[in-house]
Design a protein around this nucleic acid. Structure first.
Lengths: 129, 129
DNA sequence: CTGTATCCAAATCGATACTG
DNA sequence: CAGTATCGATTTGGATACAG
């Protein structure tokens, strides 16, 4: 397709499906919320605003499959399951944290940019109303 | 909503909608593909594998609105439009790049983890087949 | 070339009910 | 408590047609 394209692009490399996974709706939050510690299922559910039981399960399974999260089940009643990051997961956590910090640092700047953009768009519709 | 929640979690902070934006399907690739340079619309479309015209437009508008991408239009025929990162966008690019590099560095490890997980899952269905 | 508009298919997601 | 199963609503996204 892009045989003439000598340059490397992220969307064409082998890491694509890994990037896609992290780019899903919840993985980033799950990783950030587990953090350095150990968390139980419902604890995560409470702390991640808006996530449904289903999506937490699906996301955790995906991260477990990728070797980013470990799942430890204690065969007691009621069941107790603990999640924490693997060593690999903790290297990813550094990136996630950097990213969250970036967002925090620039939240005002971005909201201002949005306001400017929206005002500009409204103006173009009604220039001098 | 979460007034009783004293603890800070990334999913409840003001940066939430910013993180959500970057976590969409294409933003990361668009940012990485524009990179330090300047790219035209169809150039991006060619280099980002699998993106449709519609989604490239939608993603670029979102990034432009957030002040991450600038759009420069030359009023010629045929139209020529160039996209590049703003200063803010370039600070984000650093995070994106770190993230892409992380994925590249660990792609083998993750694929191995996936294979292990899948083998394990198959085993549990047919323990000694 | 760089879009916008419309329509439709598919994936995603949340609510609910149920299980060990 | 920690899930699984199912279903319907919503969202997303691709294909197509068309415009400046």
């Amino acid at each position: 397709m892009q045989a003439a394209e000598a340059e490397w692009t992220p969307s064409q490399c082998r890491a694509r499906d890994i990037l896609d996974r992290i780019g899903d709706k919840w993985s980033l939050y799950v990783i950030a919320t587990i953090g350095d510690g150990t968390k139980r299922f419902n604890q995560l559910k409470r702390e991640i605003d808006g996530i449904s039981q289903r999506m937490l399960t699906v996301t955790l399974r995906g991260l477990e499959r990728d070797g980013i999260v470990t799942r430890t089940m204690y065969p007691v009643m009621p069941p107790r399951v603990e999640y924490s990051l693997t060593e690999l997961g903790r290297t990813l956590l550094e990136n996630v944290t950097a990213f969250v910090l970036w967002a925090e640092r620039h939240v005002d700047e971005i909201e201002a940019a949005r306001a400017r953009y929206d005002a500009r768009a409204a103006e173009e519709v009604e220039p001098f109303a």
